[in-house]
Write a protein that binds this DNA or RNA. Structure first.
Lengths: 134, 134
DNA sequence: TCAACAGATTAGAATAGTTCTAATCCCGTG
DNA sequence: CACGGGATTAGAACTATTCTAATCTGTTGA
């Protein structure tokens, strides 16, 4: 009756706890927050002995994002990043090596956002501080 | 001796004023600021009777960005946007239709950006206010 | 328990946006 | 005005992502 946490989390998100999803949740949420791309997660999964296809990694990333247990971070036009931290925060993006670093939401603040055009509502405010190694 | 403005602008940017580049500059900078993708610019050029290949549009967008007369805006993981406004400003991004709207730089402000990790310098701070039609 | 079905997974094909290649073209110098 | 090197081009190639259609697996209900 008492499911393990990964299964719980999937059930709570309305997702059927399949082997692949359970293992990906364990990989993603067992040790602090992570940033990843589909490719990097697929590689990490393989390295951790989790057998899952790239297609499923893509499906899962989108389902998790949809379900609110992951957040997509748009910083690079050439690929999608995901973040296990779905709370209020922003990012440094190291342009040299494509790395993300969290900025806590209580440190950074955006003021003076104009009222959106009539009939539009603000969905989210993203701040990306682009930095580079020198 | 007195070149037309488009040619001037290209010379100033250190770019050889070829037919395609001159015509693209005229299209881009003759009537207020514009937001575009490579595909949309290629289509607009065609509609304006400017004969230019898609490859050249891509080359030109990158060269102009490099030269500082265009700015790239990263809002969508699936394609690149460019903006003729290179001054200090931010954007609304209408998620429904992939449209950009400028937010003047003197209206919006970001405070509390932490010091970047040692050996890194801030390149730019981008704010994207994601909105959706309701 | 287990049959059966809906949903999930998969390999590989397909697609979209972008970059590359190598041939041709054309701007600016002499 | 010839020439050389950068610019342009069509189309191939590439990369990240999505789609397809076949197979598999959780879950439900008898």
């Amino acid at each position: 009756m008492m499911d393990e946490p990964a299964v719980e989390r999937l059930r709570a998100a309305g997702l059927r706890p399949t082997r692949q999803r359970v293992q990906l949740v364990e990989l993603l949420f067992s040790d602090g927050h992570r940033h990843m791309t589909a490719e990097s997660l697929h590689a990490d999964a393989g390295a951790a002995g989790v057998q899952v296809s790239l297609a499923t990694v893509y499906n899962t990333l989108h389902q998790f994002t949809e379900a609110g247990i992951l957040r997509e971070v748009v910083v690079d036009a050439s690929r999608s990043y995901f973040d296990t931290n779905t709370g209020d925060h922003q990012h440094f993006f190291v342009e040299n090596d494509g790395t993300l670093i969290d900025i806590p939401g209580d440190e950074i603040a955006v003021s003076g956002i104009p009222t959106p055009p009539k009939g539009h509502a603000v969905d989210r405010v993203d701040v990306v501080v682009r930095i580079r190694k020198n």
